Simulated scan of single mutants.
Amino acid sequence: MSDFIQLHILTHYAPANLNRDDTGRPKTALMGGALRLRVSSQSLKRAWRTSDLFEAAVGNHLGKRTRLLGKDVYDAMLAQGLDAPKALEWARQIAAAFGSLEIEKPESKKKKSDGDSAAEQDLKKLLQIKEIVHVSPAERQAALQLAANCVQRGKGPEVDELKLLSKDATAVDVSMFGRMLASASEFNVEAAVQVAHAFTVHRAEVEDDYFSAVDDLDTDTGAGHIGERGYGAGLFYLYVCVNRTLLQKNLQGDKALANRAMASLLEAITKVSPTGMQNSYASRAYAAYVLAEKGTQQPRSLSQAFLRPVRGSDDRSMLTESIASLQKQRENFDKTYGPCSDACLALDTDAGTGSLQALIDFIQD
């Protein structure tokens, strides 16, 4: 039976463009008949796992999502004195162990097209894997070690040596957020952390920010540039579910590492903001409210608390109303289905109660 940690987070962001759609405007969602601002789970997870805070906590156990592992291997072999043609050939073989290559068959010098040969094609594309691969530190090190062995013996990799993928590598981010490999599904990793899209608890509109820039050397002509971008502000609800049992399993039973990973994740969730247009809006915010629950019961989001958009009032802020709605929804679920968790603990900056350290101790217990 799995042991779950559920996190319910309320965070306020001043005017910002946290997560853009294909037109460059803030993402939105229609919920409860009202338009809301939205931040995708992919945006949030990337901000957390690439943050300085997260890296400082579990840096030795962080993988890399990349298509360019082959370029790393190629550069390493060149640095060890191998000639470029052999380095390219062997690096492509090693990269192909992690997924199909973007260019399966480079053009040979005998078959030139518009004067281009394999050596003249874009090196990056020749070494690029088709799909982004989440590579663990151990897998990357194994690839580089194989490259070094090949250079040392002057011979390319053997078939058995190219079995570089592993499900036993203890990469925290892979264990948390999973890995999907279309060409090697046996090495997929089921995510132990599920992250919902964050959305505003109230109605929200994308507004237009008209701006201009003045040419410092030509002030007589007025604006040197005129533009427009979208922005929005709001109080966001975010739901995160951690399967502690699966996380520890993914980390090869290392409970201490699993606890350290959960602590760093919680701190990142409460302190690290999406990186979209930070320089333009300085949209850095700490969580205003966090409710943590733990138990073996079937997890559930409390998003239903905000089907009716929160309004706030003269004597109660939108944050106060939102906290009350969350707590009421939790009570109603418990009345209907029985307790949905064994214990809970909250951090509430509105009331000035609780602490991040207390929450960390709670989820690690």
Results as ranks from 00 to 15, higher is better:
A57E: 09
L78I: 15
Q42G: 08
T66W: 01
L35T: 15
F54Y: 07
G33Y: 10
D83P: 01
D83K: 15
L53R: 11
P26Y: 12
A96N: 09
A34W: 02
A57H: 09
L35N: 13
Q93K: 14
A79S: 14
R46N: 12
A76Y: 14
S43I: 03
D83V: 12
A76M: 12
V58E: 01
E89G: 03
G59A: 04
R92Y: 00
K71L: 09
L37A: 15
A91W: 01
R46M: 06
S41I: 11
E89Y: 11
S41N: 13
L35P: 08
A87Q: 00
R67I: 04
A57I: 09
L78Q: 13
L35W: 04
P26R: 07
D83I: 03
M77T: 08
Q93C: 06
A79W: 01
L35D: 12
N60W: 08
Y74I: 01
Y74P: 00
A34E: 14
A76Q: 14
A56R: 15
K86C: 05
K27A: 02
A29E: 12
A56S: 11
R49M: 11
R49H: 06
D52Y: 12
L69K: 02
D72Y: 09
L37C: 04
W90V: 00
P85V: 08
A79K: 15
R67P: 02
S41V: 09
R49Y: 12
L62A: 00
K45W: 12
W48Y: 15
A29Q: 12
Q80L: 15
L35E: 11
G59M: 08
K27Y: 03
K27F: 01
P26Q: 10
V39S: 05
W90K: 05
E55F: 14
L68K: 04
V39R: 02
H61I: 09
G81C: 10
L69S: 05
A56W: 02
Q42W: 01
G63C: 03
A87D: 02
G32W: 08
T50N: 12
A47P: 04
K64P: 00
S51M: 10
L37F: 00
K71D: 08
S40G: 10
D72K: 14
R49E: 14
R92V: 01
K27C: 00
T28N: 06
L82P: 04
L62P: 01
M31Q: 10
H61W: 07
